[in-house]
Design a protein around this nucleic acid. Structure first.
Length: 271
DNA sequence: ATGCGGACCTGTTAGC
DNA sequence: TGCTAACAGGTCCGCA
């Protein structure tokens, strides 16, 4: 579920429901996520009023006067806003209960996600302080990416998925952006031309924006509990289409593994 | 500094 | 049908 567009969609839905709301209490059923949920969260969050919900990469920041809750959804996490009567299901690890009766419920079967707490600027938190630029910001541009790639010989797909370079480009959208830009995922990063980086930057922005738009329209009703995937799926050109034909030239798509992740591309359209 | 492989954990699906 | 293996949207760490 969660690549950047899904996280951003979650952020928007969540913000609408919890901003300006006061935390009454919390229930932690499973403290052991990727990191143990710190006790400081239990101590400091109750009584707080949520000011804003922001995002840095795939981390959600729930900002209060006393500090900031930092939430990552990992591979399988999701957040829903439900009513207090809604019974907790399997893998519902944390509830943040608000005085208006709503509950922010964190569910994560694989527990690759995280819930942290920071008293200071969360951007200085060890998990966030080394992150690269935001893909939808102006700082993510041709000159930046081209320059950053000069010393890097690794496959371009792994390069754009490196969160120290740029955040939020996960496996699905890396595959899609490379297809749109006509670049083979295996090309060493330092062999691409400036022009190719220009296409790539624009493809990444385009793909992420389109997906956010999709998520935004289908997940509007955040109270409903059907976290259906598949909204952006109809628009995928290569991801999940290994062995099928290229939508542009009808060549059979190639599927390989790069960094233990599946990578699909068209040998004819991508150079 | 860079790049690679393994680790974390559960659920689902493909294959025998 | 039932079992096992492989794979799944993400990071982080340690070693070469």
């Amino acid at each position: 579920m969660p690549e950047l567009p899904e996280v951003e969609t979650t952020r928007i839905g969540l913000a609408a429901h919890i901003e300006k709301q006061q935390v009454k209490g919390l229930i932690i059923r499973q403290r052991q996520l990727r990191y143990p949920i710190p006790k400081s969260l239990d101590r400091q969050l109750p009584g707080q009023i949520i000011q804003t919900v922001t995002r840095r990469g795939k981390y959600l920041l729930v900002n209060c006067a006393a500090g900031h809750m930092i939430v990552h959804l990992g591979m399988s996490g999701c957040i829903r806003v439900v009513n207090a009567e809604t019974k907790a299901a399997k893998h519902d690890h944390v509830d943040i209960i608000f005085t208006n009766g709503h509950v922010m419920r964190y569910n994560d079967p694989r527990r690759f996600g995280a819930i942290l707490w920071s008293n200071d600027d969360p951007h200085n938190h060890p998990r966030l302080c080394s992150l690269g630029v935001e893909p939808l910001s102006r700082a993510f541009n041709t000159a930046y990416l081209h320059h950053a790639s000069r010393s890097r010989r690794l496959a371009i797909k792994l390069f754009i998925m490196d969160s120290k370079v740029v955040v939020g480009v996960g496996n699905i959208y890396a595959n899609e952006a490379l297809f749109l830009a006509g670049i083979k995922p295996t090309r060493p990063a330092n062999t691409l031309s400036r022009e190719q980086y220009e296409s790539l930057v624009s493809a990444i922005k385009q793909v992420l924006k389109a997906a956010i738009k999709c998520g935004g329209t289908t997940l509007k009703d955040f109270q409903s509990s059907d976290g259906k995937p598949g909204y952006f799926q109809q628009q995928l050109h290569v991801y999940g289409r290994g062995q099928q034909k290229c939508l542009q030239c009808h060549t059979r798509l190639t599927e390989i593994r790069l960094g233990q992740r599946s990578s699909v591309y068209c040998d004819h359209c991508q150079r």
